[in-house]
Design a protein around this nucleic acid. Sequence first.
DNA 1: GCAGTAACTATCATTTTGCAAGCGACTCGC
DNA 2: GCGAGTCGCTTGCAAAATGATAGTTACTGC
Lengths: 145, 145
Amino acid sequence: MSSDENNLGTCPVDRGLMRVGDRWSMLVLRDIERGLTRYEQLRTSLGIAPNILSRRLSALADAGLIEKRRYSQRPPRDEYLLTEGGRDFLPILMAIGAWGRKYNGAGALSRHLDAATGEVVRPVVVDANTGAPIGSRPLHLEIPG
Amino acid sequence: MSSDENNLGTCPVDRGLMRVGDRWSMLVLRDIERGLTRYEQLRTSLGIAPNILSRRLSALADAGLIEKRRYSQRPPRDEYLLTEGGRDFLPILMAIGAWGRKYNGAGALSRHLDAATGEVVRPVVVDANTGAPIGSRPLHLEIPG
DNA sequence: GCAGTAACTATCATTTTGCAAGCGACTCGC
DNA sequence: GCGAGTCGCTTGCAAAATGATAGTTACTGC
């Protein structure tokens, strides 16, 4: 592997993928955002094996993207909520969704609408400085050291 | 699994992850963008096992994100180039990078500069309709059927 | 009690990943 | 024209992750 927790590379992409770089983790985040915050909801929605779901949930909690909260003592019931870091990751899922729609989008797909305008949301990654979409202007990679 | 090639769900995120939903694939795309287009360059840069790299490269080619091109007949030498779909995925990697920098960014990290302005690029996902960052306005999820 | 539900854990088979070695097709140096 | 070196892989096997299934704990509601 190019890096692990103890041997960090200089690439921020790698740093990001270190925390969420697998399919189930991302799908769990997506479902929590949709309001499926409880174990059984996630399990049935995703069709994931319970041991795997448990592991993914604790990995995401360790990585600081979600947190487990007990909302009922008797009976003991928990829910998983997004942290700030988890919410910050959602736009990336939207961007992946936009890509998936474009390149693997046969058939009817779910989509997000702007609650105010009712228009279909079209996620694009831009440079906050210029407002220009990434890819529309030439860039230069700077590597430290 | 919630879906496979024959049993497609309605979620565009899932559709996207179906094609690139693993760490190595994304790191390969990142490295190809950096100009590391040949097998040995990728292998040494990533520290990936050769059999795994072969598998990832053909999976990415099958998924239509890269293509293999022979640039020398004698000796036989190949390179892997991004397709349009692959280039379209790069902004997502930039967004993941920005997230990684924010939440797992200790130490010196590489970064992209705008070639014209020299400023550090700050990738943000916005709604192309409103220009507002995703997350800043309430959304509504619409599911077909 | 007894059935039912939520939230898991434990066990074991299957799949994927990773390491190390090797191989074919060449080039280069002598 | 022979040996060493490089590139782009493949093969074989071990280790780790994933997945299917069954079972467990802690309750509620009848």
